[in-house]
Every structure is written in C-alpha cells, then in structure tokens.
Amino acid sequence: MTLLSLDRLTVKRGDCPVVDAATLTVGAGELVGLIGPNGAGKTSLMRGALGMLPHSGMSSLTQMPALARARHAAWLPQARDIAWPIAVETLVMLGRTPHLAAGQRPSARDRAAVAQALATMDLTGFETRPATELSGGEQARVLIARALAQDTPLILADEPIAGLDPGHQIATMAAFAGLARGGKAVMVSLHDLGLAARHCTRLVLMHKGRIHADGVPETVLTQANLAQVFGISAHLAQGPQGIIFQPLEVLR
C-alpha cells in the first residue's frame, strides 16, 4: 500500500530549485533513510511533501485536507522547539491533537497511545517532569514520542537521532524499524550512514536537490556514490546484519 507518493516535486528558493523534480513512492513496511550532504534538499523535500513550502509537482499529502493529513502523516521538525515548561506527558499528548475534537478530553485510547509512545522512547517515569528542564537528548526523545503518539500510518522525521547517545540512537532506529515492520512507513533524514545502512530498508540519496540514488542500502552506499556526493571514501563490508559502513577520509 502506497502511503506517500511524490511526482516531480520541485521546491524553489528564489530561482534556485532546492528540490528538483523529485519522484518517489513510499509504501507500508518501509523505513526510508533520506541521506545526503548539508543543503542537499532533504528537509525541503519533506516539508514540500507536507505542503509547508510553495512547490510545483504533485505530493499525495498536499491533496488531503489538513485534518486528514494530520491523521495520515506525523512530522517531526529538525528544530526542537518547546516554548513552555509543560509536563512531558502533556507534551506527548499534543500528538493526539488531530484525533481529539476541540475541547474533547483524552480518552483511554489516547492515554494508551501516549503511554506506549513514552515507553517506546524509554521515558517512563518522566511523565510529570517539565519538558524544558530535560537534557537536549531527552527533549529530542520526548519530541519523537509526540510524533509516535500521533499514531499515523506515515512518519516523516528530520534528523531525529542527531544529538542522542548511541544507545538511544540505536533504540530509536529500532523503534522506527519496528513500526515499519508493523505496517507503517517511516522516512527519516540522517547523517549517520552506518545506522542508516544497518536499520533502513531503503535509502534515498539526495545531491544538489535531485534524487541521486534510491534503493536498498547495498546499491546506494557504493564507493562511487560516496565519492561523488559526499566526497569521502569509506570502508564498506558485508556483515551478518547487512552492510557495515565506516567513513575513512575526505577526497577533495
């Protein structure tokens, strides 16, 4: 089942296309890693797909009404904004906003979704703490939990694991992989190519606004692609759990 489809999606900043005719579909069961150097257009691709940037071309998400879209796709922005010292549980409950009518109190189902999200992100026991008093990595996990609590078939996350410790990076990627196996689809942008190779079912490599390569990690993480797009060399090996990636040096 297709959960996201983009057809020649183009996002322009002034005259310069930051996303140039991107075409892809994401189906249930996929954990898509969106990789590429800084400024390659990863964030713009996802924000354009969600209709948050002026764009041309087609995105299946922008054709939905706002509320239907909020029930279909959760978006985790890169900026970790928490404006007020609200309790962690209250913050994660915000993810239930699209499922609650104005003024409606959270039902048992909403509370269960929040508890589940908190447990997934290893935040049980943090419920009543003010979110602004947590460490940066803990705040990042709380915000991921909010996106999980939204309980949507599709999750788009912009660098969700940046700044997390290794244990929670792996746990977060594993949680996304688990959601994908359960029939959802997740698209994450990330810079840790080793984790991307290890956990993603598919990688989309962006370069200068274009989709440079798209496929299983083995076909995308090649010496040629790494040299051309990132300008690095790397050690690539086949391990028992997929491809093993270790960056070595800058080529330029």
């Binding site: 924000r47 969600l50 948050m52 706002a66 509320l67 879209r69 909020a70 029930r71 796709a73 959760a74 978006w75 985790l76 922005p77 900026a79 904004d81 928490i82 404006a83 007020w84 609200i86 913050l91 915000l94 993810g95 906003t97 699209p98 915000l143 909010r146 939204q150």
Partner: peptide, 14 residues
C-alpha cells in the same frame, strides 16, 4: 497548545 512545539509541528498536527 500545539504551537508550543513550533509552527511546523503545529501545522502538521492539523
């Protein structure tokens, strides 16, 4: 309430 998490997140929550 939703804007606590920023304009992008609020927009994506409908």
């Amino acid at each position: 309430d939703a804007l606590t998490l920023g304009e992008d997140a609020a927009a994506a929550m409908g």
